[in-house]
Amino acid sequence: MSETRPLILVAQPHLAPLLGLLSPQYDVMPLWEDSGRARLAYAEILVTAGEFRLDPAMLEQMAALRLIACFTVGYDGVDLDWARSRGIAVSHAGDANAEDVADHAIGLILAHRRQIVTGDRQLRSGEWTAGAKMLTRSMAGAKLGIVGMGSIGMALAARAEAMRMRVGWWGPRDKPELRWPRAAGLEALARDSDVMVVAAKATESNRGMISAAICEALGPQGLLVNVARGQLVDEDSLIAALREGRLGGAALDVFENEPTPAARWADVPNVVLTPHTGGATQEAVAKMAQMLLANIAAHVAGEPLVSPVA
């Protein structure tokens, strides 16, 4: 290990482009190769995609670890209690992709509510005939319920208002400073919503919070949109509700297991699906890279992290 440059391990293969970004300033090695795994005890910094759970046994071997730097905004794969108990700092990408995820949520709502994907398929298959019109539903006046009013939720609310939707929300903590009304609870929000968007941070305490009961409350005309984490939705209950007509529709960018098997959704009606691309814009990824570099540089310099995990 270099005596002048800290050793950084990069955890997942899809983060391989970061090796070239980091190597001019630091000693960097891939954890998915034997050469990287052999240096576990010497690595001061671990770069990871925050949605992936870090192996506790591996972490215990990292005696020199002082910073877990999440390239992503999310950090639910990091055991924060474990890190704090060992004095290990954790950083993430802040709200680097919040605006893009909010855009994607609006896109999913439009795609489902205006039947854009269905229309595309009908045209391509020759089903568009003279005089035939597919009636869809307007955005104006629709009641939007947002689960989790953080950076994504607030960006979404502003966009929805511009589209003349009526906005409400629910989260475990009240935010009196917000102008949008907070529902009495999650089920109450579902009952009062035409469209419900899940934009909450995922924790073990809220796993499966979008349950069969919430699907029932949203109802046969309701649309569920998830741009947060797949684990927040009881996926089996969601699929059953869609098949049985107890839920009107779903538009999903995240799934319980990723990549989700195509066969799981082959016969599920009234769904629009995207492969976890809500925050994956060129601009957002560039911001995430900048945040990663800034957090690592601050750590190495002994300065406060730019975007620490609270």
Rank of each mutant, 00 (worst) to 15 (best):
L19N: 08
P56M: 11
D267I: 12
L54F: 06
G222Y: 06
E177T: 14
D79Y: 03
L242K: 07
R113Y: 04
P304I: 10
T203H: 08
P176F: 12
K133T: 11
A64Y: 00
M29G: 12
D236I: 09
R37P: 08
V10Y: 02
R179I: 13
H112S: 13
W128A: 11
I214E: 12
M1L: 10
V225L: 06
D95H: 10
P308Y: 01
V254I: 09
Y75H: 13
D253E: 05
E303V: 11
G141W: 01
D81I: 08
V197E: 05
E177Q: 15
I210Y: 03
R159T: 07
Q25P: 06
A301E: 14
T281K: 00
Y42R: 15
V300R: 01
A140Y: 00
A310C: 14
L232T: 02
G230Y: 00
S151Y: 10
A263V: 13
L238Q: 02
F52S: 12
G208D: 15
M1P: 09
A64H: 06
R113P: 03
F255M: 10
I88V: 15
G145I: 07
G148W: 06
Q231G: 01
T118F: 12
G219M: 11
T4P: 00
R113Q: 14
A89Y: 00
D100S: 13
D253T: 06
G171Q: 14
G278Y: 03
A16T: 12
G50L: 08
S211D: 15
Q221M: 12
E44A: 09
H92A: 10
P304G: 10
L247Y: 06
L223W: 02
G153K: 06
R229M: 04
R164N: 15
D79P: 04
R191V: 09
V197C: 09
S85D: 08
P24Y: 12
L224P: 02
L305H: 10
A57Q: 12
R137F: 07
L40W: 05
T260S: 15
I296T: 03
A162C: 11
V300P: 02
L80R: 09
R137Q: 12
E187N: 12
R37G: 10
H14G: 07
G131R: 09
I68V: 14
A188L: 11
R207G: 07
T118W: 09
K143L: 02
T203Y: 04
F52D: 15
A266Q: 15
Y42E: 15
Q115P: 00
R66M: 10
A132C: 01
E44I: 01
K287R: 15
R37W: 05
V147R: 04
L67Q: 02
G249F: 00
E258R: 13
A298D: 02
G302F: 00
G87E: 05
I146Q: 01
M29A: 15
P275Y: 03
V117N: 11
G148I: 08
D27M: 12
S35G: 14
V309R: 11
I210G: 04
H276Y: 09
T136Q: 03
G185C: 10
A155M: 07
D81E: 14
R124W: 03
A217T: 08
S151P: 07
R66Q: 11
V198I: 11
W32D: 06
L108T: 14
A266K: 14
L273D: 06
Q290V: 07
A111H: 11
N206T: 07
C215E: 05
T129Y: 00
L223M: 01
L9F: 02
L59V: 06
E127Q: 14
V225F: 06
A280N: 09
A294S: 10
